[in-house]
Every structure is written in structure tokens, then in C-alpha cells.
Amino acid sequence: MERFAVPSLIGRHVYLRAVTPQDFGFLHATETSGELGPRWRFRGATPSPEQWSHSTWGNVLAQFLVATTKDNSPVGMVAVHQANFQDGHAQLSAARFKPSDKTPSMMLGLAIFLQYVFGCWDLRKLYMEVPEYNYSQFSSGVGNFFEIEGRLRDHLYSGGRFWDQLTLAIYRDVWVDRGGAIVELETAG
């Protein structure tokens, strides 16, 4: 009989943990101020705590904080939402709390999350809606880890100009083939 393999949420450098009510104040403040505020989903707006909470949990299938194993500090957040099990796809979102942080921590956390999502649900592909101004943070992955499947030209206004919005797609088979080695390094031992 094959052994039941549980997708791990714990890596050597980072781990994923559930978002709890104790995190709400920190997350609300982080998302609506500082480096991340204009870049992520509220794009500079400051929703009330109630609106923020509703937006944070609406249609969410799974959501975690990415934290470092060294000192438990949160480095980002990952979520999959709007799952469509009939057609086998869902939306993926990921945010690094300090976009200027140059350690690989957030990418390792995202890799663990992708392994978890594809291990828990029979989804074929995950979509990411990405503003053009965030794309350069990970654009080298196109063709290797994800594809660009849509582009809305001049769709977003931020920083005094219009930007495209990209729809990226991560396919299960591509991820298993190319992302597995990175997850294996991070979760070994």
C-alpha cells in the first residue's frame, strides 16, 4: 500500500502558518502603509478593519503567512482563492511584505505553498493577476515556471501613469517538473 504523503508546510528557512486574529493588526497596517501598500491589492487605499477582513477572507481556499524559521518573523503572505473545481483552476496571490528584501525567503515560501496546493487539490493551473510594475521582481520565471496568458493594456493607474495588468498561469505539470527540486532542497532533512 502506498504511504499517505502530507504536503509539508515547514522548510529549512521558512515555514507557512495560518493567519490568526492576532495577526490582523499587523497585516492591516502592513498592507495599507509603507512599501507594500501601493503595490498590492488595495493599491494605496485604506479600507476599514471590517472591509480589510472581508477582503482578506473572501473566497479564500487556503491562506498562510510565510515566516522565517530563524526568528519567526513574517516575510510575506500567500493565498489561493476563487477556486473553480469544475474547470480545475484557481487564483494565486503572493506578497512580500518588504518588496526591497533580496533574500530568497519569500520565493521559498511560495514554492512550499505551490507544493501544498497542488498536493491538496486537483487543480490544473493557478492564475496570478500581476501589475506590470511588480512583474520585474520575478520575470525570469516566464517560460520556465509560468506563462503569460493575458495582458490588459494600460489597465492600472499608479505612480502617476498607467500600467498593463498581466495574467500569469502556473501549470501543475510544469511546477511538478521544475519546482520540485527547489522544494526538495528546502524541505529536506
Binding site: P104, M107, S136, Q137, F138, S140, A181, I182, L185
Partner: peptide, 14 residues
């Protein structure tokens, strides 16, 4: 970028 850096690290340590 962050993906290229992680791939490079994984490539040389593997």
C-alpha cells in the same frame, strides 16, 4: 530577480 537568484543557488549547490 528573485526566481533567477534562487535557481542559481539551487543549480550550484545541487
Amino acid at each position: 530577480d528573485s526566481i533567477a537568484l534562487l535557481e542559481l543557488i539551487a543549480s550550484v549547490v545541487a
